[in-house]
Design a protein around this nucleic acid. Structure first.
Lengths: 161, 161
DNA sequence: TGCCGATATTACGTATGCGTAATATATTGA
DNA sequence: TCAATATATTACGCATACGTAATATCGGCA
């Protein structure tokens, strides 16, 4: 694939779009008064929210609260070493707390704080609205193609190593 | 756009794809023995290569060599403050040099070194090959849709501010 | 000519992500 | 039981990008 014109390079477009959407999200969080939330937190937060919902459904209270830092990373697509700093910042911003697992003292369980739980609707509304605005004027069918292609890209890249 | 499942979120896919392709490119540069080149240099390098080609065509030797750091940033889609560090690293890696413009001492002109010029074919070959591998098995038509959508995304995001 | 707003760049702090190496704890096999 | 190995996390350094606040220089107008 010969590319000489930078604005036509799919790699250029991919990186710029990623950065732009991230910047837009960040701004929307501030405007919606949930400035504690950074785009990078979304993966971890959504894991925690989902997990807590499941626990509730299973009435598993008090038994196995929290998610291992490492599993949270797997779920959000991040390396363990990346998670340390991410959870540091989320803890600093009052969204989660760490606690050692008494059963396995190597493990840090990450748990939502009350605040981390409470902001869920606001955060999801911002995400919803921002994605709508970012993908405005793009036919459903094209969006599906884009997500399919990006999934294939992830597969292709992983195959290459 | 309601998203509850992270791997289906277009934002998640976009950021992961961007990071994955960047990592793949980095690795390919190392494997192709042009490890001085980092993916982030591509935009600036391609501007400089193109510019130098144009100058040659116009036989403008010795008159107006180099590109202003700020214009290089515009061309690569990067903020001026980002360019400082980028050109620092490119200079450290022997690909470019800075020189004050005698006509306007505020300006730093950025110029290719011999090495920066010499690696062009190898670097473009790596880019070419890597993009082929990353977008392997994706029909031409879909790739076109993806680039169109990403361009629209960039427009939509800029409209929002 | 000399001051003032504009322009180009740099400096500094922050966020985000990676890889490698160290640390702490668990588990397992002899 | 104890040494070897495996697992979970953290520490540290680097790359990449941004925004805001200096700094240096230019250009134009009184």
């Amino acid at each position: 694939m010969l590319v000489t014109n930078i604005p036509d390079c799919p790699y250029y477009l991919l990186t710029r779009a990623s950065l732009s959407v991230t910047a837009a999200l960040k701004k929307e969080f501030v405007d919606a008064d949930v400035s504690e939330v950074k785009p990078a937190y979304l993966g971890a937060l959504m894991c925690l929210w989902t997990d807590e919902g499941m626990e509730e459904a299973l009435a598993k209270f008090g038994t196995d609260t929290g998610i291992k830092l490492i599993d949270l990373g797997r779920c959000a697509g991040l390396e363990p070493s990346t998670m340390t700093g991410l959870i540091d910042r989320m803890e600093r911003d009052g969204l989660v707390v760490r606690a050692h697992d008494p059963n396995d003292r190597r493990v840090q369980k990450v748990m939502l704080t009350e605040k981390g739980r409470a902001i869920q609707p606001a955060v999801m509304a911002v995400l919803d609205k921002t994605l709508d605005s970012v993908f405005d004027n793009i036919p459903e069918k094209h969006l599906t193609i884009v997500t399919d292609v990006l999934r294939k890209v992830l597969v292709n890249v992983n195959k290459g190593e």
